[in-house]
């Protein structure tokens, strides 16, 4: 069966162009000497220098990275436990509800999640005095809540495909369950743990809506700074910041991808 492939491939190329051209233009214009973002005024790294002197952006970036790190670590731990429960747990009471609670955060509109978590924090502070004020803790808790659902999806897929014969062999040889878990299961799902961690990290670094709801007046994350400056119009500094973020994320994804590919071989 021979069908002409070129119409299909040109549609594919169009799709990739649609996905990548806007981002490439963004990067190109971050090196624009002109303040007018859309008029080319020659090559310059001026805006990168300006960015590195912008303490507001740097402080916000530092806060975001701290939140994202704690979030990614805890979300991966909780996601691993949840995936173990779903893949290995068999039937348990409340499994349906558990799966529902793990799927809902994947598609739930962010405004709903943000609003409901803020109202929870306000009510908790009112009744038990914790959390005292809003900021790092509340944003991290909110991020873990939706990131763990994504982490679970990634780890669950890996666990479900995993060959169990190694675990069984270790048990036959008398290894205790916890030892089997730490020395066999965890190393085998390590690539998935890494992807889950990276995914949770970028999701947290990227979140504007939920953080805006649960952040206090003193804590401003990077997306919140970007958002307020973007609302005022296009700025070359934001282009420079965007390019740096794109560079870091692409590098991380490519390195992780290569590491996993090598492991598989």
């Amino acid at each position: 069966m021979k069908t002409r492939r070129w119409p299909l491939y040109s549609l594919l190329a169009f799709g990739y162009a649609f996905l990548y051209v806007p981002v490439l233009l963004l990067v190109v214009y971050s090196f624009n000497a002109s303040r007018l973002v859309t008029v080319w005024g020659g090559f310059s790294t001026h805006w990168y220098g300006e960015l590195l002197n912008n303490t507001q952006i740097l402080d916000a970036a530092w806060l975001s990275v701290r939140i994202a790190t704690v979030n990614a670590t805890l979300a991966t731990v909780l996601g691993t436990l949840a995936a173990m429960a779903l893949v290995r747990g068999g039937r348990f009471r409340g499994r349906g509800g558990f799966e529902l609670l793990l799927t809902a955060p994947l598609v739930m509109p962010e405004v709903i999640v943000g609003l409901s978590l803020l109202l929870l924090f306000v009510a908790m502070q009112h009744s038990i005095g914790w959390p005292d004020g809003r900021g790092f803790t509340t944003i991290t808790i909110a991020h873990i809540t939706f990131s763990m659902a994504y982490a679970t999806v990634v780890i669950r897929a890996r666990l479900a495909q995993m060959d169990r014969s190694l675990e069984e062999a270790a048990m036959d040889l008398g290894a205790r369950p916890i030892v089997v878990y730490l020395r066999i299961t965890l190393p085998l799902i390590a690539p998935a743990l890494l992807s889950a961690w990276l995914l949770a990290f970028t999701l947290s670094l990227d979140d504007l809506v939920i953080a805006s709801f649960v952040a206090g007046p003193a804590s401003t994350t990077l997306p919140m700074v970007v958002y307020s400056s973007v609302r005022l119009g296009v700025s070359p500094q934001i282009n420079a910041l965007a390019s740096l973020i794109l560079l870091f994320v692409s590098l991380a994804v490519i390195v992780a991808g290569l590491a996993m590919a090598r492991k598989r071989d």
Partner: peptide, 18 residues
């Protein structure tokens, strides 16, 4: 998948300039 990993806010911002 790669664009999915990069910032959502920044990808929306890119369209303002366009």
């Amino acid at each position: 998948i790669l664009p999915f990993w990069t910032s959502f806010l920044i990808r929306v911002y890119a369209w303002i300039g366009i």
